[in-house]
């Protein structure tokens, strides 16, 4: 197992992935680092990758006049960021910005989609993981909406 594969295997998202699949995804991964304040992705830009955070912290944010720039989700080591590479039009829906110095694997979406076409089992393994992350995010979002409704005191 290469150093890269070991690091990937250490990330919770790929934790129990089979070695042959790990080798395939490693071929689509390269490590990147960002300084505090750097953007990992910009709203509207092509989304042909996602990030597995290894250290540091990233904030999903957007400009929402007149509220200004608003952070709406934060993520740290062990988390996965970015879903827009999965579905057309393959564009980022939000900005992602490093709040501190951050290291991550950038996973090439086109490369992965190519591997999925060859190996549906790999596609299944990854999509199952992405579905779980998306589902949890969606649950959390619905709870937040509920809190807002509570605060407003009306149904």
């Amino acid at each position: 197992m290469s150093q890269e594969q070991r690091t990937l295997h250490g990330h919770p998202f790929f934790h129990d992935l089979e070695p042959r699949h790990l080798a395939l995804v490693a071929g689509c991964a390269h490590e990147v680092s960002f300084s505090a304040g750097d953007y990992l992705a910009r709203e509207g830009h092509p989304a042909d990758h996602f990030f597995l955070l290894l250290s540091g912290g990233v904030r999903m944010e957007t400009s929402a006049p007149p509220l200004g720039v608003l952070g709406i989700l934060s993520a740290g080591a062990g988390e996965v960021l970015g879903f827009n590479w999965i579905y057309p039009p393959y564009k980022w829906s939000f900005d992602y910005r490093a709040t501190v110095d951050t290291r991550a694997f950038q996973m090439d979406g086109r490369c992965l989609r190519g591997e999925f076409a060859q190996d549906h089992e790999l596609g299944y393994q990854l999509m199952t993981r992405f579905s779980a992350v998306l589902g949890r995010n969606l649950d959390a979002t619905h709870l937040q909406i509920l809190e807002l409704i509570h605060e407003h005191g009306t149904r």
Binding site: R59, V69, L70, G71, I72, T141, L143, E147, L148
Partner: peptide, 21 residues
Amino acid sequence: VGSADPTWDGNIGVVTSLVSK
């Protein structure tokens, strides 16, 4: 907090996700 301007340097998200983190 559910949302914050850039001066906030803490977590953003729902409190329940902090439990697992």
